[in-house]
Design a binder for these strands. Structure first.
Length: 555
RNA sequence: GACCCCAUCGUCUAGUCAGGUCUAGGACAUCAGGUUUUCAUCCUGGGAACAGGGGUUCGAAUCCCCUUGGGGUCGCCA
């Protein structure tokens, strides 16, 4: 039988790194076995599902290069015979199996309200008892049930957990996992709104879609016995389960899609903000609901705006966060693969083709892993350094198109190419050249020279000082008849030979400061070429015009 | 709290399933030098771990048990 794996996210925001890793493992296992990867959208929660969110997932997966064979159709991906692949479009299917379970006595209707259940849970907690549903609905006589249903009284359907034998499941990563009878309560398989719960939908869909291997995060481990029970009751096959360990934050907590909201709530509380800040675009009642419900998530845009207003940095947990931060998809994938899996031996850097060739479930690590940004960054640097020049230019260009169009608008194609290549050796991410190169796209009159320590050192200190050298070299540059890096190098090194004892830095640094307003830039000759002669001279002149006031305040 | 899962350098891991070749290997981070027109690179070198206790065995990082520690789940979320 051919291998069929599935990645089944719920569409509640962007794809987070844990989900991305599950998707990668599903992809890799299927690819390694010439099997099929299915994508299924688990949107049975009417309160939390939105179309925009599920498209975000698709885009994230596509960016990573994790293409699905079957699933929602999107830019040439997806399709297939076992759809529909959105659970909200499969309600009639679940109804059929629900009826089967009720008819066969494996499930029953229950009429307690959510409030009643919450109260029962609270009471159990107070008495330090483990709460389990008391099966009161099982005592209802059939006529009463029929009458209540006929009246339209809301009900849920619960699965009647057999109490006789331990439930033993086999896991490809963890081995045998055993749960004693009586540990599980009669869990709900259909909600009052008519939608199935996750448990029922997953079991039915996995069977109907022919899924052979379920690779998912260990937070689902406790669900598997329930699914096994449902599968047995429905006469379904059990898939092979592989529960992958969790990904942690550096502080040891679980890396969660809710971390952004958590950070925002903490900040709001610590600042004692009671109402939604002006410009956050959040309604007052929605704000209150969000503050009071730690499972509720803001939309990405709302969260980003709010973080901006509060002046805090949101934790990077989504694939999209890393994309915007200038990481390469192949590096993120490489790093994610290493988090919880290892090909054995010393090899650490590899591509998707290598993963495809070498992936196996028995090399998945059981223990949880902390997400280490520093190592990811180091890998990204290595990948950028290994890239050939043309590719770097093209990919940086694409990055700017998506996130920093100002850099493309402000430069000619040639300037951008010089800019890119001048930055390649010093970039750890695509964002590095952008952040350190803002001065390239600023107007000449926007450059300012804050009196920081490195600026003071470059301009004011020493005898002669930077200003002196700048004044002298300004006219040399003005007379340059050619403005190429090579020619500039000749002029300036020659000048440094006679005026700075051959120490190019003595003159390069003051120029760098004058044209950039900071102490950091690409190699100086490239920098000047990108700026061009006019901008260079204008900026030097403006800088020199500040000489007096800077020297005054520096003494 | 109940149930379940896990345990090698600061971090990710190799080695564990088939016990000896392990005075435990690699990578990231860190520290000390060096190269460099700034930043970033780059080069050389150093320190750094088998959670603790019991077994089994000629021999245990590797097998068993207990303790401790960490984590997950306990929703009409998935």
């Amino acid at each position: 039988m051919s291998v069929r794996t599935r990645f089944a996210p719920s569409p509640s925001g962007h794809l987070h790194v844990g989900g991305a890793r599950s998707a990668l493992f599903c992809w890799a296992y299927a690819a390694n076995h010439d099997g099929t990867l299915l994508l299924r959208i688990e949107d049975t929660d009417q309160k939390r599902s939105s179309d925009a969110a599920s498209r975000g997932f698709l885009e994230d997966l596509a960016w990573l290069g994790l293409d699905w064979d079957e699933g929602p159709q999107w830019h040439g991906r997806g399709g297939g015979d076992t759809g529909p692949y959105e659970q909200s479009n499969r309600l009639d299917i679940y109804e059929k199996y629900l009826a089967q379970l009720i008819d066969s006595g494996h499930a029953y209707r229950a009429f307690e309200t959510p409030e009643e259940l919450a109260e029962a849970r609270r009471a159990a907690r107070q008495e330090k008892r483990a709460y389990r549903y008391d099966r009161a609905a099982l005592d209802l006589d059939p006529d009463t049930v029929a009458a209540w249903v006929a009246q339209g009284r809301p009900f849920v359907v619960r699965f009647k957990v057999p109490g006789d034998a331990p439930i033993v499941i086999q896991d490809a990563v963890l081995g045998e996992v055993r749960v004693e009878p009586g540990e599980l309560e009669d869990f709900i398989i259909r909600k009052a709104d008519g939608f199935p719960t996750y448990h029922l939908a997953v079991v039915v869909d996995d069977q109907l879609m022919g899924v052979t291997h379920v690779i998912r995060g260990q937070e689902h481990l406790a669900n598997s016995p329930k699914h096994a029970l449902l599968q047995d009751a429905l006469g379904f096959d059990r898939p092979i389960w592989a529960h992958v360990s969790l990904i942690f934050n550096p502080d040891g907590s679980k890396m969660s899609k809710r971390d952004k909201d958590k950070a925002l709530r903490a900040e709001v509380r610590s600042k004692g903000i009671e109402n939604p800040p002006e410009g956050a675009g959040i309604e007052a009642d929605r704000w209150q609901a969000w503050l009071g419900d730690k499972t509720m998530q803001l939309e990405t845009e709302e969260a980003t705006r709010l973080a901006g207003l509060l002046g805090i940095q949101l934790p990077a947990i989504n694939v999209d966060d890393f994309r915007r931060s200038g990481y390469l998809p192949e590096v993120l994938l490489n790093y994610l693969a290493l988090l919880g899996w290892s090909p054995g031996g010393d090899r650490e850097q590899f591509d998707l083709a290598f993963i495809r060739e070498n992936f196996s479930l028995d090399r998945i690590v059981k223990s949880p892993a902390k997400f280490d940004r520093a190592k990811l960054l180091a890998f990204n640097l290595d990948a950028i350094q290994a890239m050939d020049d043309d590719q770097f230019v093209v990919r940086l260009q694409a990055f700017c198109q998506d996130f920093e169009p100002a850099f493309l608008e402000a430069m000619t194609t040639h300037q951008f190419k010089v800019f890119a290549l001048a930055n390649k050796a010093r970039s750890k991410t695509f964002l590095d050249p952008i952040e350190s190169g803002r001065f390239f796209v600023q107007g000449d009159d926007e450059i300012e020279w804050p009196l920081t320590k490195p600026l003071r050192k470059a301009l004011c200190k020493g005898e002669p000082c930077g200003f002196d050298r700048l004044t002298a070299v300004r006219d040399i540059l003005a007379e340059a008849d050619s403005w190429t890096p090579e020619h500039l190098e000749t002029i300036l090194t020659t000048w440094a030979e006679t005026h700075c004892e051959g120490n190019l830095g003595k003159v390069a640094q003051p120029i760098r400061v004058a044209v950039s307003g900071g102490s950091v830039s690409p190699p100086i000759f490239d920098t000047l070429e990108i700026l061009g002669k006019d901008a260079t001279l204008t900026r030097i002149d403006r800088c020199l015009s500040q000489r007096e006031s800077m020297q005054e305040s520096s003494t």
